[in-house]
């Protein structure tokens, strides 16, 4: 038959994903109730909340990549960035709010990697929302105990001559890694360099892309 479809496969032959019809959880109901109360009481508006969500969605690892590329091309900026990550990011025009940023630098002998074992602290105001794996118990519990094995699973195998520094964001600071500038990029512009800087390179679970 031309329309020989089954109940569980889409016309393109993929299984249908179940509808998301589960009842709201306790915390979802609580969030909606508080949000509606704040609006009814005139403390905030629906438009303010939508604008804040848009502002968060607009942030992406591209912002952090621009900071890294500037540090690669401007030694004075790099010094300011390592001394005070928040001030240097603001200097580039990024609205990072109250983010207290510490930038940790990879060298030929040191590789840095970031985690938040207690929850999922992440420099959202500079890198946008964290990847789902960053929030998993598996990443959070394993990267402090067997960072080399975890990095290898990301495709990053480091020799023993490179010391790993794991940074656990346990309190008020947030972290990004300043990766090493890839070899053979002397001729690249700052914008082209930023294209080499991946999100994972700034978390420390990867390295920047090689020059094309």
């Amino acid at each position: 038959m031309p329309h020989d479809h089954t109940d569980h496969l889409s016309p393109s032959g993929h299984p249908f994903r179940p509808d998301n019809d589960a009842p709201l959880t306790y915390w979802q109901v609580m969030e909606i109730a508080i949000r509606e109360l704040l609006i009814v009481k005139g403390i905030t508006t629906a438009a303010d909340i939508a604008a804040q969500i848009d502002a968060m969605d607009a942030r992406s690892p591209a912002d952090g990549a621009k900071v890294v590329a500037r540090a690669w091309t401007d030694p004075a900026f790099k010094a300011r960035l390592l001394a005070n990550g928040s001030a240097a990011s603001r200097e580039m025009g990024f609205d990072i709010g109250s983010l207290r940023l510490i930038v940790v630098e990879n060298t030929p002998h040191i590789h840095n990697v970031i985690v938040c074992t207690l929850c999922s602290c992440y420099p959202r105001n500079l890198l946008g929302l964290p990847p789902d794996w960053y929030k998993t118990r598996a990443y959070r519990s394993r990267v402090v105990r067997e960072p080399r094995k975890v990095l290898a699973e990301f495709g990053l195998v480091l020799p023993d001559s490179i010391r790993i520094r794991v940074h656990d964001s346990t309190a008020d600071m947030r972290y990004i890694v300043l990766p090493a500038r890839p070899a053979g990029t002397e001729e690249l512009s700052e914008a082209d360099l930023a294209d080499l800087v991946t999100r994972d390179a700034m978390i420390g679970t990867g390295l920047p892309k090689a020059a094309a």
């Binding site: 105990r145 960072p147 790993i164 520094r165 656990d168 964001s169 309190a171």
Partner: peptide, 19 residues
């Protein structure tokens, strides 16, 4: 110091913020 003999590489380090 953290993991004793189970450490992957004893000279790797971990930094955390502590009050």
């Amino acid at each position: 110091e953290i993991w004793g003999a189970a450490a992957e590489n004893p000279d790797d380090t971990l930094d955390a913020e502590i009050f």
